[in-house]
């Protein structure tokens, strides 16, 4: 066992259960539309992130990434399962604990255009988290805004504008600054670059990574871009049709993908059809190696070796 761990590149000494900051256990989320028609967004998802870890959730649109992200920061309550923050269940937090949770876990939404109140000046929007949490005086507030602006690279004069008067890239920097201003422990970034030009994308990602390394913040990066995932993350979760089909260290997954879906992603083969909602395995119909059991039961999650989990009958 020890040998396998070494092979898979697990070196970090803080990789203990007690260092898990945020985790999701058997989380499911579904929506009931029209008459008893169930749309499953997430199914039995397990997720965890350690202190200061860079994690990436990869999957295409509709795979449930965003739902998972919102559940992790408590914006959506799951239908079953639990989210734990520092070991405590999210649903059982009292008011002050909830406030701390809201401060420690920050969310960067997908589309910067709609992330800030269009009627507010950027400065006020940026300082708003400080005001709501009531953690500093007016003078400190200005200092903190100034500091965080320098770190993300926006000039203070830009803050005298309203959201629609600045470009998408600048706006996204403000949104990032807003997430960092409370010095959180975890940042959940939901495709923060997908709405931006490629040239700006790289800069934004660089900004986030710089901030991360400066203050040892945990980051959950949601993306559909493999290149980006390779760049930003240590650990990776691959999502498909509301399930996590493969998880493990990014290096390992990129080197030896186990799940057929991950393989097709790495080869750059686009999926042929839409995934069927209620089929037992999300990849059924696409997969080249199908056995009889694949179309009957959903595959269980199985740990192949330390920290490397796959949801496929081949490894069950």
């Amino acid at each position: 066992m020890r040998l396998i761990q070494d092979l898979s590149g697990i070196r970090t000494p803080n990789n203990l259960e007690s260092n898990v900051i945020l985790s999701a256990e058997h989380v499911s989320k579904w929506y009931i539309s029209f008459k008893r028609r169930k749309t499953v967004a997430l199914e039995n998802v397990n997720f965890s992130i350690f202190k200061g870890e860079k994690v990436c959730i990869i999957g295409e649109s509709g795979s449930g990434k965003s739902t998972l992200a919102k559940i992790l920061c408590g914006l959506i309550t799951p239908n079953s399962g639990e989210v734990r923050f520092e070991g405590k269940k999210l649903s059982e937090l009292n008011k002050s604990e909830k406030k701390v949770f809201r401060m420690r876990v920050q969310y960067i939404p997908q589309c910067p255009d709609l992330a800030l109140d269009p009627t507010w000046y950027l400065y006020d929007s940026l300082a708003e988290p400080l005001r709501i949490q009531k953690i500093c005086s007016k003078q400190d507030e200005f200092e903190r805004v100034k500091e965080v602006c320098e770190r993300v690279g926006i000039g203070m004069d830009q803050l005298r504008r309203k959201p629609r008067n600045v470009s998408g890239g600048e706006l996204q920097r403000v949104v990032i600054a807003r997430a960092f201003i409370l010095s959180p422990e975890i940042i959940i970034a939901d495709e923060p670059t997908s709405m931006l030009d490629p040239s700006i994308q790289a800069k934004i990602v660089r900004t986030i990574l710089d901030l991360q390394s400066e203050s040892n913040i945990g980051i959950v990066f949601l993306t559909h871009d493999l290149e980006l995932a390779k760049l930003v993350s240590e650990k990776m979760f691959v999502m498909l049709g509301g399930r996590i089909v493969e998880s493990g260290y990014t290096r390992d997954i990129l080197k030896t993908p186990l799940h057929p879906y991950t393989k097709s992603l790495l080869m750059g083969v686009p999926p042929k059809t839409e995934f069927k909602q209620n089929s037992p395995c999300g990849f059924y119909g696409e997969c080249e190696i199908v056995s009889e059991v694949c179309c009957q039961y959903p595959p269980p999650e199985s740990e192949v070796y330390g920290g490397r989990k796959v949801r496929c009958w081949r490894y069950a």
Binding site: Q110, D117, T119, W120, E128, P129
Partner: peptide, 24 residues
């Protein structure tokens, strides 16, 4: 999204209605 973000930084409902919804 921005109201979601506000909930994410623990803004109260009353606060959101009066400071953000009404101006909008």
């Amino acid at each position: 999204t921005f109201v979601e973000g506000l909930i994410g930084i623990d803004a109260s409902k009353i606060y959101i209605v009066f400071r953000h919804i009404l101006p909008n």
